[in-house]
């Protein structure tokens, strides 16, 4: 027995992989709790730190967490669109770069962005107008929403006729562990401005998660992707057009989630288990003899299953 246990003993590397799996599968806002449990099970700080150093950045980026800037000038989103070298993230609105401690999930430092980290004045006009519109929309639609507009390819384009990309990131999280409930809404919109045919193409990804765990564990995981397009116009007009497209799709998506919830009791959930039997009365446990009788008769007649 002792030998067998030694053989089945995992290598440090395997333990780190398992620890990472748990961390990455943490529900929205719960990675710190999961980390505490994983740490106590591993009972080895080196292995835990290795797993945490690898898993936290991935978790923070996929969950688009927002962190307060240390100088209280706002929040920075942890997203690949704003990621720079050395755990630094750009906040385009304030033109600042925040240094992030992924495992502690805090900003440790902030500096003004360098010129080469920012877009050209031509692109910045589009970005800034869109940011203003999106900010208006997010303040209206998400009580705890944080949003940002980034420049992707073509940030140094100087004038009309060229292609460039912007990205809108919206993240709203609500953590209320005292009510055993956490949740998050993340949406990212890739926006391609096509200089040659004067169109703007949008690709959106929305992801909503919720976890309720008072004496149980129930989780919602919903995702949706969509596409749309509009005309390439002046910065202000583009901003209004794009933000109304985003508003429209996100409103529709919320309505479709509501519809999914509404159809649970009478259609979807019914395919797992009915509320009442097909007979619409409780099962006749006191009178199960009738079933054995029918069975005996059908057996005798040779019509049984």
């Amino acid at each position: 027995m002792a030998e067998e246990e030694e053989e089945s003993e995992l290598s440090g590397k395997q333990k780190v992989e398992i620890a990472k799996w748990f961390l990455l599968n943490s529900p929205p806002g719960e990675i710190q709790y999961v980390a505490k449990d994983v740490k106590s099970i591993l009972n080895n700080d080196d292995l835990f730190n290795e797993a945490a150093t690898e898993a936290f950045p991935v978790y923070n980026l996929t969950h688009l967490i927002s962190l307060q800037l240390p100088n209280r000038t706002g929040d920075v989103l942890v997203t690949s669109f704003g990621e720079l070298e050395g755990n630094a993230f750009l906040d385009p609105r304030t033109a600042q770069v925040a240094v992030v401690d992924h495992v502690k999930q805090v900003c440790t430092d902030v500096r003004p962005a360098a010129d080469e980290e920012l877009p050209s004045p031509y692109i910045e006009e589009f970005r800034c107008s869109l940011d203003a519109e999106i900010l208006k929309y997010v303040e209206e639609a998400y009580p705890k929403g944080v949003c940002s507009v980034y420049c992707g390819n073509g940030k140094d384009v100087e004038g009309p006729g060229c292609d460039f990309e912007l990205a809108v990131v919206i993240s709203a999280a609500r953590h209320s562990p005292q009510n055993f409930c956490n949740g998050s809404w993340c949406s990212t919109w890739n926006i391609e401005f096509k200089g040659d045919n004067q169109t703007v193409e949008l690709k959106g990804k929305m992801q909503v998660g919720a976890h309720y765990f008072e004496e149980g564990n129930v989780q919602l995981d919903a995702k949706h992707e969509c596409k749309d397009a509009t005309l390439f116009q002046a910065p202000e007009d583009c901003a209004v057009g794009i933000s109304s497209i985003i508003r429209h799709h996100e409103t529709e998506y919320l309505a479709s989630i509501e519809a999914s919830y509404l159809s649970l009791p009478d259609s979807t959930f019914k395919d797992l288990r009915r509320k009442l039997p097909v007979t619409r009365t409780l099962f006749p446990w006191h009178n199960t003899l009738q079933f054995s009788l029918t069975r005996d008769i059908s057996k005798e007649l040779g019509i049984g299953k």
């Binding site: 949740g183 919720a210 919602l220």
Partner: peptide, 14 residues
Amino acid sequence: YFGKTREMVCTLRP
């Protein structure tokens, strides 16, 4: 349980 997750979605985006 499903109701609570739905409530959460509505808190995130009323």
